[in-house]
Design a protein around this nucleic acid. Structure first.
Lengths: 118, 118
DNA sequence: CGGTATCCCTTCCGATACTG
DNA sequence: CAGTATCGGAAGGGATACCG
């Protein structure tokens, strides 16, 4: 999903969004940060199963793409806070709709009976 | 993005949507099909650079996930038409917003000057 | 606390050639 | 026309251990 950076002379710009948000934990992070600023450790604790390596990587990529802002406080012990940029906050509606869509998807395809190729 | 099928007892269902829509060509396909039913060859011609193998795979996965409906007409030469299910059409708003977001993202991060880690 | 470094496996996905 | 078969590279991402 990465590698070809947003070079889409295409008709449809959906893929641009996907290149930026397509990572395994990207939207989950944005979702958390929509609720407010978080420290590294907070995110790590609240995102079930993520390794520090992955959290760092995804945060750095979101930062480079202008979605997340990283603030380092020169204290001991170190404190680093992550928040959304304006661009990041502009994902509010979309993330909300995706969350709702996923929710109702799990309903309609009632997980009790659903096979779900696995 | 695939493999762990929609098993998210989590707080946020965004990842469910991502597992379904996260493929390289998935949303581009949905985007096309939102404009109406298409035949295999039509999609292939209109989606720049996609190989038949990839088109088949992504269509099949979308079908298994209940997004796309596949209709085979027993004719010679063969004709197969792809359209969206109700679930697929329910992505209309989201796809539109993602498209708009990608578009304005490319603007704000004016591609003329933007470095874009590559 | 907030990360890195290393290793390695899996999945994705593109190229190419072939088929009913 | 609408696919399949096979191959192989590359990116994504998890486990574990260590660092300033």
């Amino acid at each position: 999903m990465r590698g070809k950076r947003h070079d889409k002379p295409d008709n449809c710009m959906v893929e641009v969004a996907m290149e930026i948000l397509g990572g395994r934990w990207k939207l989950a992070i944005v979702y958390k940060l929509l609720q407010g600023t978080h420290r590294f450790g907070e995110l790590k604790r609240e995102m079930d199963g993520i390794t520090p390596r992955m959290l760092t990587r995804q945060l750095r990529e979101l930062e480079e793409d202008g979605i997340v802002a990283r603030t380092v406080y020169p204290e001991v012990p170190p404190r680093v806070e992550y928040s959304l940029t304006d661009t990041g906050r502009s994902l509010d509606t979309i993330v909300g709709l995706l969350d709702g869509w996923g929710r109702s998807y799990l309903d309609n395809h009632h997980p009790s009976a659903g096979p779900g190729r696995n």
